[in-house]
Amino acid sequence: MSRAETAGPAAGTTGSSPAAHPLWTLGLLRSELATVFRRWRTRALLGVLAAVPVLVGVAVRIETRDGSPAGGEGPPFIAQVSNNGLFLVFTALAATLPFFLPMAVGVVAGDAIAGEASAGTLRYLLVAPAGRTRLLLTKSAAVLAFCLAATFVVAVVALGAGAVLFPVGDLTTISGTRIGFGEGLWRALLIALVVAASLIGIAALGLFVSTLTDSGIAAMATTVGLLIGMQIVDQIPQLHAVHPYLVSHYWLSFADLMREPVLWDDLVKNLELQALYAAVFGSAAWARFTTRDVTV
Protein backbone atom coordinates (compact mmCIF):
# COMPACT_ATOMS: atom_id res chain seq x y z
CA MET A 1 0.00 0.00 0.00
CA SER A 2 0.97 3.59 -0.27
CA ARG A 3 2.78 5.32 2.53
CA ALA A 4 -0.23 7.51 3.05
CA GLU A 5 -2.23 4.48 4.12
CA THR A 6 0.17 3.55 6.86
CA ALA A 7 0.73 7.14 7.80
CA GLY A 8 -2.83 7.51 9.01
CA PRO A 9 -2.86 4.99 11.84
CA ALA A 10 0.71 5.93 12.72
CA ALA A 11 -0.43 9.43 13.43
CA GLY A 12 -2.90 7.96 15.89
CA THR A 13 -5.81 10.05 14.77
CA THR A 14 -8.29 7.43 13.62
CA GLY A 15 -9.14 6.22 17.09
CA SER A 16 -11.67 8.95 17.50
CA SER A 17 -13.62 7.88 14.42
CA PRO A 18 -16.92 6.20 15.27
CA ALA A 19 -16.81 4.59 11.81
CA ALA A 20 -15.05 1.59 13.31
CA HIS A 21 -18.23 0.49 14.99
CA PRO A 22 -19.72 -2.51 13.14
CA LEU A 23 -23.33 -1.61 13.96
CA TRP A 24 -22.80 1.69 12.25
CA THR A 25 -21.85 -0.11 9.02
CA LEU A 26 -24.94 -2.28 9.33
CA GLY A 27 -27.09 0.79 9.64
CA LEU A 28 -25.44 2.29 6.59
CA LEU A 29 -26.09 -0.89 4.62
CA ARG A 30 -29.69 -1.00 5.76
CA SER A 31 -30.34 2.57 4.67
CA GLU A 32 -28.54 1.89 1.40
CA LEU A 33 -30.67 -1.19 0.70
CA ALA A 34 -33.80 0.77 1.53
CA THR A 35 -32.74 3.53 -0.87
CA VAL A 36 -32.14 1.04 -3.68
CA PHE A 37 -35.27 -1.06 -3.28
CA ARG A 38 -37.63 1.81 -2.46
CA ARG A 39 -36.80 3.56 -5.70
CA TRP A 40 -39.54 3.37 -8.34
CA ARG A 41 -36.93 2.71 -10.98
CA THR A 42 -35.79 -0.44 -9.18
CA ARG A 43 -39.34 -1.66 -8.75
CA ALA A 44 -40.07 -1.10 -12.44
CA LEU A 45 -36.96 -3.11 -13.37
CA LEU A 46 -38.00 -5.97 -11.11
CA GLY A 47 -41.51 -5.80 -12.55
CA VAL A 48 -40.18 -6.14 -16.10
CA LEU A 49 -38.01 -9.08 -15.00
CA ALA A 50 -41.01 -10.75 -13.37
CA ALA A 51 -43.05 -10.32 -16.54
CA VAL A 52 -40.58 -12.27 -18.72
CA PRO A 53 -41.20 -15.78 -17.31
CA VAL A 54 -44.96 -15.21 -17.31
CA LEU A 55 -44.82 -14.08 -20.92
CA VAL A 56 -42.67 -17.06 -21.97
CA GLY A 57 -44.89 -19.47 -20.04
CA VAL A 58 -48.15 -18.16 -21.51
CA ALA A 59 -46.66 -18.15 -25.03
CA VAL A 60 -45.50 -21.77 -24.74
CA ARG A 61 -48.84 -22.74 -23.26
CA ILE A 62 -50.78 -21.21 -26.16
CA GLU A 63 -48.32 -22.66 -28.69
CA THR A 64 -48.63 -26.20 -27.34
CA ARG A 65 -52.38 -26.11 -26.65
CA ASP A 66 -53.03 -28.65 -29.40
CA GLY A 67 -50.50 -31.06 -27.95
CA SER A 68 -47.72 -30.25 -30.39
CA PRO A 69 -44.29 -29.84 -28.83
CA ALA A 70 -42.68 -26.42 -28.71
CA GLY A 71 -40.29 -25.73 -31.56
CA GLY A 72 -36.58 -26.36 -31.28
CA GLU A 73 -35.69 -22.72 -31.80
CA GLY A 74 -35.60 -20.28 -28.94
CA PRO A 75 -33.89 -20.05 -25.60
CA PRO A 76 -32.40 -23.28 -24.18
CA PHE A 77 -34.76 -25.73 -22.46
CA ILE A 78 -37.87 -24.23 -24.07
CA ALA A 79 -38.73 -27.55 -25.74
CA GLN A 80 -39.12 -29.20 -22.34
CA VAL A 81 -41.21 -26.48 -20.71
CA SER A 82 -44.58 -27.85 -21.84
CA ASN A 83 -43.79 -31.22 -20.26
CA ASN A 84 -42.37 -29.96 -17.00
CA GLY A 85 -43.04 -26.56 -15.48
CA LEU A 86 -39.71 -26.56 -13.63
CA PHE A 87 -37.97 -26.05 -16.96
CA LEU A 88 -39.61 -22.62 -17.16
CA VAL A 89 -37.15 -21.52 -14.44
CA PHE A 90 -34.19 -22.47 -16.64
CA THR A 91 -35.74 -21.04 -19.81
CA ALA A 92 -36.59 -17.78 -18.08
CA LEU A 93 -33.09 -17.41 -16.66
CA ALA A 94 -31.55 -18.26 -20.04
CA ALA A 95 -33.82 -15.69 -21.71
CA THR A 96 -33.13 -12.87 -19.25
CA LEU A 97 -29.43 -13.48 -18.58
CA PRO A 98 -28.10 -12.15 -21.91
CA PHE A 99 -29.74 -8.75 -21.58
CA PHE A 100 -32.51 -7.97 -19.10
CA LEU A 101 -30.71 -9.05 -15.93
CA PRO A 102 -27.35 -7.38 -16.67
CA MET A 103 -29.11 -4.26 -17.92
CA ALA A 104 -31.00 -3.97 -14.64
CA VAL A 105 -27.78 -4.52 -12.70
CA GLY A 106 -25.98 -2.00 -14.91
CA VAL A 107 -28.64 0.62 -14.17
CA VAL A 108 -28.47 0.09 -10.41
CA ALA A 109 -24.65 -0.16 -10.29
CA GLY A 110 -24.10 2.78 -12.60
CA ASP A 111 -26.39 4.88 -10.49
CA ALA A 112 -24.77 3.90 -7.18
CA ILE A 113 -22.14 6.65 -6.90
CA ALA A 114 -22.79 8.85 -9.91
CA GLY A 115 -26.47 9.14 -9.03
CA GLU A 116 -25.61 10.49 -5.59
CA ALA A 117 -23.11 12.85 -7.15
CA SER A 118 -25.57 14.23 -9.68
CA ALA A 119 -28.26 14.60 -7.03
CA GLY A 120 -25.74 16.44 -4.89
CA THR A 121 -26.16 14.03 -1.98
CA LEU A 122 -22.73 12.43 -2.24
CA ARG A 123 -20.96 15.09 -0.22
CA TYR A 124 -23.44 14.76 2.62
CA LEU A 125 -22.80 11.02 2.68
CA LEU A 126 -19.09 11.76 2.88
CA VAL A 127 -19.50 14.32 5.63
CA ALA A 128 -20.87 11.52 7.77
CA PRO A 129 -17.91 9.83 9.41
CA ALA A 130 -18.23 6.65 7.40
CA GLY A 131 -15.11 6.83 5.28
CA ARG A 132 -15.03 6.41 1.56
CA THR A 133 -13.92 2.78 1.50
CA ARG A 134 -16.74 1.84 3.82
CA LEU A 135 -19.24 3.76 1.74
CA LEU A 136 -18.02 2.05 -1.43
CA LEU A 137 -18.24 -1.38 0.21
CA THR A 138 -21.77 -0.63 1.35
CA LYS A 139 -22.74 0.48 -2.13
CA SER A 140 -21.26 -2.72 -3.61
CA ALA A 141 -23.11 -4.84 -1.08
CA ALA A 142 -26.38 -3.16 -2.04
CA VAL A 143 -25.70 -3.75 -5.75
CA LEU A 144 -24.87 -7.42 -5.09
CA ALA A 145 -28.08 -7.73 -3.08
CA PHE A 146 -29.90 -6.39 -6.11
CA CYS A 147 -28.19 -9.01 -8.36
CA LEU A 148 -29.49 -11.73 -6.06
CA ALA A 149 -32.95 -10.18 -5.75
CA ALA A 150 -33.34 -9.71 -9.52
CA THR A 151 -32.33 -13.32 -10.23
CA PHE A 152 -34.64 -14.70 -7.60
CA VAL A 153 -37.55 -12.59 -8.81
CA VAL A 154 -37.15 -14.23 -12.24
CA ALA A 155 -36.65 -17.72 -10.80
CA VAL A 156 -39.49 -17.61 -8.27
CA VAL A 157 -42.01 -16.08 -10.67
CA ALA A 158 -40.98 -18.66 -13.30
CA LEU A 159 -41.42 -21.48 -10.80
CA GLY A 160 -44.87 -20.22 -9.87
CA ALA A 161 -45.95 -19.68 -13.47
CA GLY A 162 -44.50 -23.06 -14.49
CA ALA A 163 -46.37 -24.86 -11.71
CA VAL A 164 -49.64 -23.14 -12.62
CA LEU A 165 -49.44 -23.53 -16.40
CA PHE A 166 -47.73 -26.91 -16.81
CA PRO A 167 -47.45 -30.22 -15.03
CA VAL A 168 -44.48 -30.70 -12.71
CA GLY A 169 -42.73 -33.86 -11.63
CA ASP A 170 -39.58 -35.87 -12.32
CA LEU A 171 -37.42 -34.27 -14.95
CA THR A 172 -34.97 -35.44 -17.56
CA THR A 173 -31.54 -33.83 -17.44
CA ILE A 174 -29.98 -32.74 -20.71
CA SER A 175 -27.80 -35.86 -20.51
CA GLY A 176 -30.92 -38.00 -20.68
CA THR A 177 -30.92 -39.25 -17.08
CA ARG A 178 -33.87 -38.75 -14.76
CA ILE A 179 -33.87 -36.88 -11.48
CA GLY A 180 -36.64 -36.40 -8.96
CA PHE A 181 -38.55 -33.15 -8.49
CA GLY A 182 -36.78 -32.40 -5.19
CA GLU A 183 -33.37 -32.81 -6.83
CA GLY A 184 -34.63 -30.63 -9.68
CA LEU A 185 -35.61 -27.87 -7.27
CA TRP A 186 -32.19 -28.09 -5.64
CA ARG A 187 -30.52 -27.70 -9.03
CA ALA A 188 -32.81 -24.78 -9.84
CA LEU A 189 -31.63 -23.09 -6.65
CA LEU A 190 -27.98 -23.74 -7.55
CA ILE A 191 -28.59 -22.38 -11.04
CA ALA A 192 -30.21 -19.23 -9.65
CA LEU A 193 -27.19 -18.71 -7.38
CA VAL A 194 -24.79 -19.21 -10.30
CA VAL A 195 -26.76 -16.77 -12.44
CA ALA A 196 -26.69 -14.21 -9.64
CA ALA A 197 -22.93 -14.74 -9.32
CA SER A 198 -22.60 -14.29 -13.10
CA LEU A 199 -23.78 -10.72 -12.63
CA ILE A 200 -20.97 -9.80 -10.21
CA GLY A 201 -18.61 -8.86 -13.04
CA ILE A 202 -20.99 -6.39 -14.66
CA ALA A 203 -21.86 -5.00 -11.21
CA ALA A 204 -18.19 -4.28 -10.48
CA LEU A 205 -17.76 -2.72 -13.90
CA GLY A 206 -20.82 -0.53 -13.37
CA LEU A 207 -19.61 0.56 -9.96
CA PHE A 208 -16.24 1.58 -11.38
CA VAL A 209 -17.86 3.55 -14.22
CA SER A 210 -20.06 5.15 -11.59
CA THR A 211 -17.05 6.54 -9.74
CA LEU A 212 -15.72 8.14 -12.93
CA THR A 213 -18.53 10.55 -13.62
CA ASP A 214 -20.94 12.86 -11.87
CA SER A 215 -23.81 11.98 -14.18
CA GLY A 216 -25.92 8.98 -13.23
CA ILE A 217 -27.39 8.67 -16.71
CA ALA A 218 -23.93 8.66 -18.30
CA ALA A 219 -22.74 5.92 -15.95
CA MET A 220 -25.78 3.71 -16.66
CA ALA A 221 -25.52 4.23 -20.41
CA THR A 222 -21.78 3.49 -20.39
CA THR A 223 -22.22 0.30 -18.40
CA VAL A 224 -25.04 -1.02 -20.58
CA GLY A 225 -23.11 0.09 -23.68
CA LEU A 226 -19.99 -1.79 -22.55
CA LEU A 227 -22.13 -4.85 -21.95
CA ILE A 228 -23.66 -4.71 -25.44
CA GLY A 229 -20.21 -4.09 -26.91
CA MET A 230 -18.79 -7.15 -25.18
CA GLN A 231 -21.67 -9.30 -26.36
CA ILE A 232 -21.13 -8.16 -29.95
CA VAL A 233 -17.42 -8.93 -29.71
CA ASP A 234 -18.35 -12.34 -28.29
CA GLN A 235 -20.29 -13.06 -31.49
CA ILE A 236 -17.37 -12.38 -33.84
CA PRO A 237 -15.42 -15.61 -34.41
CA GLN A 238 -12.33 -13.78 -35.64
CA LEU A 239 -11.92 -12.23 -32.18
CA HIS A 240 -11.94 -15.59 -30.41
CA ALA A 241 -8.65 -14.75 -28.68
CA VAL A 242 -10.35 -12.22 -26.41
CA HIS A 243 -13.57 -14.19 -25.87
CA PRO A 244 -12.46 -15.94 -22.66
CA TYR A 245 -11.95 -12.54 -21.03
CA LEU A 246 -15.39 -11.14 -21.82
CA VAL A 247 -17.62 -10.99 -18.79
CA SER A 248 -20.54 -12.53 -20.67
CA HIS A 249 -18.63 -15.34 -22.40
CA TYR A 250 -19.41 -18.15 -19.95
CA TRP A 251 -22.84 -16.95 -18.86
CA LEU A 252 -24.75 -19.82 -20.44
CA SER A 253 -22.53 -22.32 -18.60
CA PHE A 254 -25.16 -22.41 -15.85
CA ALA A 255 -26.91 -24.97 -18.07
CA ASP A 256 -24.02 -27.36 -17.35
CA LEU A 257 -25.55 -27.85 -13.90
CA MET A 258 -28.34 -29.73 -15.67
CA ARG A 259 -25.93 -32.27 -17.08
CA GLU A 260 -25.38 -35.58 -15.36
CA PRO A 261 -22.69 -35.71 -14.09
CA VAL A 262 -22.31 -31.95 -13.84
CA LEU A 263 -19.69 -30.54 -16.20
CA TRP A 264 -17.79 -28.12 -13.99
CA ASP A 265 -15.14 -26.75 -16.40
CA ASP A 266 -17.01 -23.74 -17.75
CA LEU A 267 -18.89 -23.13 -14.51
CA VAL A 268 -15.59 -22.75 -12.67
CA LYS A 269 -14.17 -20.57 -15.45
CA ASN A 270 -17.24 -18.34 -15.24
CA LEU A 271 -16.93 -17.89 -11.47
CA GLU A 272 -13.18 -17.23 -11.77
CA LEU A 273 -13.83 -14.62 -14.43
CA GLN A 274 -16.47 -12.90 -12.30
CA ALA A 275 -14.07 -12.88 -9.35
CA LEU A 276 -11.38 -11.37 -11.57
CA TYR A 277 -13.70 -8.61 -12.79
CA ALA A 278 -14.77 -7.95 -9.20
CA ALA A 279 -11.13 -7.71 -8.08
CA VAL A 280 -9.91 -5.54 -10.95
CA PHE A 281 -12.83 -3.13 -11.26
CA GLY A 282 -13.59 -3.20 -7.54
CA SER A 283 -10.07 -2.07 -6.72
CA ALA A 284 -10.10 0.41 -9.59
CA ALA A 285 -13.32 1.86 -8.22
CA TRP A 286 -11.71 2.06 -4.79
CA ALA A 287 -8.60 3.74 -6.20
CA ARG A 288 -10.72 6.27 -8.04
CA PHE A 289 -13.30 6.93 -5.36
CA THR A 290 -10.90 7.35 -2.46
CA THR A 291 -8.74 9.82 -4.34
CA ARG A 292 -11.17 11.90 -6.30
CA ASP A 293 -12.26 15.39 -5.39
CA VAL A 294 -15.92 15.54 -4.61
CA THR A 295 -17.00 19.09 -5.27
CA VAL A 296 -20.65 18.72 -6.18
Binding site: A4, A11, T14, R288
Partner: peptide
Protein backbone atom coordinates in the same frame (compact mmCIF):
# COMPACT_ATOMS: atom_id res chain seq x y z
CA UNK B 1 -13.94 14.77 3.56
CA UNK B 2 -10.80 13.39 2.04
CA UNK B 3 -10.22 9.67 1.96
CA UNK B 4 -10.46 7.69 5.15
CA UNK B 5 -7.37 6.85 7.04
CA UNK B 6 -5.59 9.87 5.70
CA UNK B 7 -8.03 12.45 6.93
CA UNK B 8 -5.95 14.09 9.60
CA UNK B 9 -2.51 12.86 8.72
CA UNK B 10 0.07 15.62 8.55
CA UNK B 11 0.58 17.09 5.14
CA UNK B 12 4.33 16.71 5.54
CA UNK B 13 4.04 12.93 5.65
CA UNK B 14 2.21 12.76 2.36
CA UNK B 15 4.69 12.93 -0.51
CA UNK B 16 2.47 14.58 -3.07
CA UNK B 17 -1.26 14.38 -3.67
CA UNK B 18 -0.80 13.33 -7.29
CA UNK B 19 1.65 10.57 -6.42
CA UNK B 20 -0.58 9.36 -3.65
CA UNK B 21 -3.48 9.20 -6.06
CA UNK B 22 -1.51 7.31 -8.64
CA UNK B 23 -0.28 4.84 -6.04
CA UNK B 24 -3.80 3.52 -5.45
CA UNK B 25 -4.19 2.56 -9.08
CA UNK B 26 -1.32 0.17 -8.54
CA UNK B 27 -3.82 -2.17 -6.89
CA UNK B 28 -6.06 -2.89 -9.92
Amino acid sequence: YASDGTTDSGQTRVPHPMRRKAARYVVP
